[in-house]
Nucleic acid binder design. Structure first.
Lengths: 348, 348
DNA sequence: CATTAGCACTCTCAATATGAGAGTGCTAAC
DNA sequence: GTTAGCACTCTCATATTGAGAGTGCTAATG
C-alpha cells in the first residue's frame, strides 16, 4: 500500500474501471478498457497502470487472470474524487414527487411511502428511521380507559406521531381520578418537548396531584417507556427483496445474512445511526461498516427534519458496486423533499 | 383418477410415505418403507400399492425411478384422515407463553410479538391480520391541532388500537370551533362501534353542529378513511427469511415470488381472508390456494378474538411438505392464547 | 525512456462424458 | 395374493476437456 502518486492518467483509468464495473458487475480487463473507452492507450500500458493501482490498494483481482475490480479504497477514492456528482433530472424528480402523492398524510404514512418510493426508484432496499421523538413537542396527552383493569396512555406530538402504551391498573380505580390525572397531564405537558417529560412531571405535577400515587407512578413509567427508543416500528424498510436482483448476492450464503439483518430492528438502527451525521448525504463503503453482515455493502444516508429539532434518517443499502451517483442524488433529494412535506404537516 | 377403494393397508402406506416425506424432503421409495417401517410387506408389494395410489391421484413421481411424493390430494387426505392430531406438550406451551411475556402491552405490540413467536416456534413465516376494526368500540375521539394548516384526527378503540389521520384545513380555522367539534365527536361516538360512525355522524351530529360544514365534512371523511381497510400495518409478518431454510425453495426462481409476495400487503390480506373462516383452525393445501405464488405452499390459519365481535386471523405459511401436526397444534394454541391476552386487555 | 507487440501461462466456466445409486415395472415363481 | 429377480431409467456427483479472457514479462519500437 504505497501512497499513490495519482497522476491524471491513473485517475482516468481508475474512474473508467469503476464506472464499468458498476455498470456490468464483471471484472474489467485491460483489453476491454482500451476498446470501449477512448483513452488513446494500448492494453499493455493500461495493464501496467492497473498493476500500479493494485499495488497501491485501489484495485484488486478476484483471481489471477480475471479483470480488476475496485477495492473498498478504490470506491472511496471514486466517491470522493472521481465520480461525477449529478442532480436528478426534472422528470426523475417528478416521478418521486408524484410517488409521494399530493395528499396530506400522517407522518407514518409519509415515511412508509418514502421508503417504498426510494426502494422502487433506486432498485435497492431502503431504510428509514422515524424522526427522533426526543425534541418533538407534545400536543395532546390522554388516558383512556379500555377495560376494567387497563388504561391506555396516548400522546401526540407536533410531528403527527401517536404513541400509546397500555397501563395495567388495579380494578377499583375510579373514573374521576383517571380523568383528573388525564386533564392535568395534558395541561402541563402540552407544548413541551418530549425530553422534558420527566422533570416536568416530577417537579411540577407531583406536588399538586390528588390521584393515587400508584397510578401516577405507573403513568410516568409508561410515558417514559413510550418515549424510549425501543418502541416498535422505528426503522421502516422496503424493497428488501430487491437485493436479490444484484448478481453479487446470487448465492444463498451471500444474501442470507442480509435478509436476516432486515428482520433485526436493532441492527438496522445501528446501521443508520452509526453512519449518519447531520448535514449532507453520507456514504459508508464496505469494510467501513461495523455490522458484519454488511461488509460487502455500501450504505448511503441523509438526515431529514420533522420539526425544529426532530430529525430522522433515510438510507439506501446496496452492494459496494452501487450506482453511487444516482443513489446519492436520490437520497439527497428525498431527504429534502421529506423534510418539506413534514414541514407543511407541522405548519412550519 | 379412479375413485380409490382405500383399504387399511393403502391408508397405512400413504400415511407412512407422507410422514417420511415431510420429515426428509426426499421422494420415498418402496425399499425405504419396507426397511424403515415395520409393515410386514416386501418392497414389491408396496410398489404395487404405490402404483395404485398414484393412479388414484394420491401420490406422484417427480420422474421415473425416483420415489413417490404425496400429491396435493394426498396431503389433503393425510390432513383430514390420516394424520395424528396432537396437542402441544406442556413444555412447548410454556415456551410460547413465556415468549409472549407476562407484561401487559398494547395490542400492536402483542400482535408483533405473536408473529415473532409463531415464526420462531414453527420455523415457517407467520402472518397476522390485525383485528377487524369494524365492530370495535370507540373509546376516545379527538382532534389535535398540529400546525397552522393541519389537524390530527385520532381515535382509540376498546382493543387498544389507535388510528390517526391528518386533516388538511384552511388557515383561519379557530381553536374554538375545533375544540367544539372535538368534544362533540367524543361525546357522540364514544362507546359506539366503529361501524356506526357514518350514520351517527350524519343523523345525530350533523343537525346540532355549529362548526363550519367544511371542517365537518373533512373530519367525517378522515374518520371513514381511517376506518377503512387499507390502513397501513394491517398484516404483520415475521420470519419471512425462514422460508429459505426449506429445501424446496433453494433456487432463486422458487423463493423469489414468495419474497415479493411478502412485500405486498394486499396479497397477504387476501391470502389470510380467503382461507380463514370462523371456528377452528383451517388448512389450505397447495393448488387450493388462489394466489399464484403460493401454489406449492400450504397455509394454516385460525381466527382470534379481540373483543365481542372483533376478530383477526393468524396464519403460518410453509411448503406443502409442512409439518402439519405441529403447525396445526401451534396455530390453534396461539390463536386461543392471543384471544385470552386481548381479552384481559379489554377487560372482558 | 515510456509505450507497445507478442507470447506463454493461469484461471474460470460451460459442455460433455462417466459411473454409481436408487427406484421402478414387469414377469415368473411361490 | 405375494414376492424374488432382473432389466431399465433417471439423477446426481465427479472428472475431463477446450475455449475464452486476462495477466505478467520480455523484447522491440519510436
Amino acid at each position: 500500500m504505497a501512497q499513490g502518486i495519482m497522476d491524471e492518467r491513473k485517475r482516468r483509468i481508475l474512474k473508467v474501471i469503476t464506472d464499468d464495473y458498476i455498470a456490468s458487475a464483471e471484472p474489467v480487463g485491460s483489453r476491454t478498457i482500451a476498446r470501449k473507452y477512448d483513452l488513446g492507450l494500448s492494453p499493455a500500458t493500461i495493464r501496467n497502470e492497473m498493476a500500479d493501482l493494485e499495488e497501491e490498494g485501489y484495485l484488486e483481482q478476484p483471481h489471477t487472470s480475471a479483470g480488476r475490480i475496485p477495492s473498498h479504497r478504490g470506491y472511496r477514492y471514486y466517491v470522493n474524487e472521481l465520480m461525477e456528482r449529478r442532480r436528478l433530472q426534472p422528470e426523475e424528480i417528478e416521478r418521486i414527487v408524484k410517488g409521494m402523492s399530493a395528499r396530506k398524510r400522517a407522518i407514518d404514512h409519509l415515511i412508509h411511502q418514502a421508503a417504498r418510493v426510494l426502494a422502487q426508484f433506486t432498485h435497492y432496499p431502503s431504510l428509514i428511521l422515524a424522526p427522533d421523538k426526543q425534541h418533538a413537542v407534545i400536543k395532546h396527552v390522554r388516558l383512556v380507559r379500555l377495560g376494567e383493569r387497563s388504561v391506555l396512555l396516548l400522546f401526540v406530538t407536533n410531528t403527527g406521531q401517536v404513541e400509546s402504551k397500555v397501563i395495567d391498573c388495579y380494578p377499583d380505580l375510579n373514573d374521576f381520578d383517571l380523568d383528573n390525572l388525564s386533564g392535568l397531564l395534558n395541561m402541563r405537558l402540552c407544548n413541551r418537548p418530549v425530553v422534558e417529560i420527566k422533570t416536568t412531571m416530577e417537579k411540577e405535577l407531583g406536588p399538586e396531584l390528588r390521584c393515587p400515587p400508584e397510578l401516577f407512578r405507573r403513568t410516568l413509567e409508561a410515558l417514559l417507556e413510550a418515549v424510549r427508543n425501543d418502541t416498535i416500528e422505528q426503522v421502516i424498510t422496503d424493497g428488501t427483496a430487491q437485493i436479490l436482483d444484484q448478481p453479487e448476492f446470487a448465492e444463498r450464503e451471500r444474501f442470507r445474512p442480509l435478509l436476516d439483518l432486515f428482520e433485526e430492528e436493532q441492527a438496522l438502527y445501528r446501521l443508520l445511526t452509526e453512519n449518519a451525521g447531520p448535514g449532507k448525504v453520507r456514504v459508508t463503503i464496505g469494510e467501513e461498516n461495523k455490522e458484519e453482515a454488511v461488509r460487502n455493502c455500501s450504505v448511503v444516508t441523509a438526515t431529514y427534519e420533522a420539526g425544529p429539532r426532530a430529525v430522522g434518517i433515510i438510507g439506501v443499502l446496496g452492494p459496494t458496486r452501487m450506482d453511487y451517483a444516482k443513489v446519492l442524488a436520490t437520497v439527497e433529494f428525498m431527504a429534502s423533499h421529506l423534510s418539506r412535506l413534514l414541514g407543511e404537516l407541522t405548519g412550519n
